[in-house]
Design a protein around this nucleic acid. Structure first.
Lengths: 194, 194
DNA sequence: CGCTATCTGTAGCGGGTGCTACAATTGAGT
DNA sequence: ACTCAATTGTAGCACCCGCTACAGATAGCG
């Protein structure tokens, strides 16, 4: 038995994130987590403290990788309209990507099991606020740049997008018809004037 | 000990529905259910068979009462625009109603724990399809009546509404600012031409 | 009244949960 | 080389889960 940490912390968190992402919080058991992380109970409680703490860690990891990648697609293009569409394309492309087992881990967090734990609820809500905030800022920026009319309500439009997105992340799990989803997105964007 | 059923079946299902509705499927334990239903394990397995079966029964009960009431608000008014708004008003009013502990039990069903059980998933998906179908039919009816332009895509608009609604049912649990929600709804409806 | 069918409470089963105590083993520091 | 702190696997804890076997009580029926 070793005296120094023997497993790859980052790799373990990444594996755990995938599992939480795919199966949700309370539906993922500690034994399953240990298996995909490749470590035993001893190391786990030494390094992570508890299942809850690991979940918080995974949320952070998720935002640092997946959320950031998607929001980059939103922010990078010069025009909002391109940005918003690039964002949705990025999300839909993940449907065919085996590395992204579900659509959105943040959206999955808006469930009774996660929201029932105060600490997790606080974290999820704060993450979603940050996510929505990025949308608001991008739309307001476009308004200032003259790309959107002055009467355009950036905050409301951004929140409609985020709310719709939350629904999309649910519906997509049982719909799976990409063409139909793309029609919905385009209809919404045009309706909002984007 | 009696030789005839001693509890009120309808009442028991109603209580169970409230609990499932509030806490989700796997987060509601059998013991909790028995407590609010006011019966013991013996009667339970005699009358309901299993937790899964009870959940299906509760889904039916939910649709027969809550879903139907909401869809009535959609269908009853002469104009679609009124109908859609009456529907959303009906949903938002339930936020202040203590008899409706959460927003939508169908939306809550789109979670890993429920979707993981094939039988429950089938039922939830079919119920949501029925729900969405009512929206589609209402919009198409309005189109035929000349209330909506001929180029209006009823199916897509209806599904955008339902997807948005799914998101709303999630976001509302952590947002709780009715005025802001009403702004979102109005922006979406106007955007869709409703 | 007696018999039988039925419902109900109890007690508990097998298994899963998150978590912990602890000994065994190892590496780093001196 | 020796000590000491640190990590690790194991074994098991207390609790909860959905569910079942079964005996006891009771109502309906002859």
């Amino acid at each position: 038995m070793p005296a120094t940490v023997e497993f790859d912390y980052e790799r373990a968190v990444d594996r755990a994130t995938q599992l939480f992402w795919k199966k949700g919080y309370s539906n993922t058991s500690l034994r399953e987590l240990l298996k995909v992380m490749g470590i035993g109970e001893g190391s786990f409680y030494n390094s992570f403290g508890s299942k809850k703490d690991l979940y918080l860690e995974c949320l952070g990891h998720y935002n640092d990788t997946v959320s950031r990648r998607r929001l980059n697609a939103l922010v990078s293009p010069a025009s909002v309209k391109e940005g918003v569409r690039a964002f949705f394309k990025c999300v839909l492309d993940d449907l065919d990507n085996p590395k992204t087992p579900q659509v959105c881990m943040l959206a999955n967090g808006l469930s009774s099991d996660v929201l029932a734990e105060r600490e997790l609820a606080r974290s999820i809500v704060s993450d979603i606020r940050w996510f929505a905030g990025t949308f608001v800022r991008r739309l307001e920026e476009a308004k200032k740049a003259g790309e959107l009319p002055l009467e355009f309500n950036a905050a409301v439009a951004a929140h409609v997008l985020v709310t719709f997105l939350q629904g999309l992340f649910r519906v997509i799990r049982v719909l799976q018809d990409r063409a139909q989803v793309e029609q919905q997105i385009e209809a919404l964007l045009r309706g909002l004037g984007l």
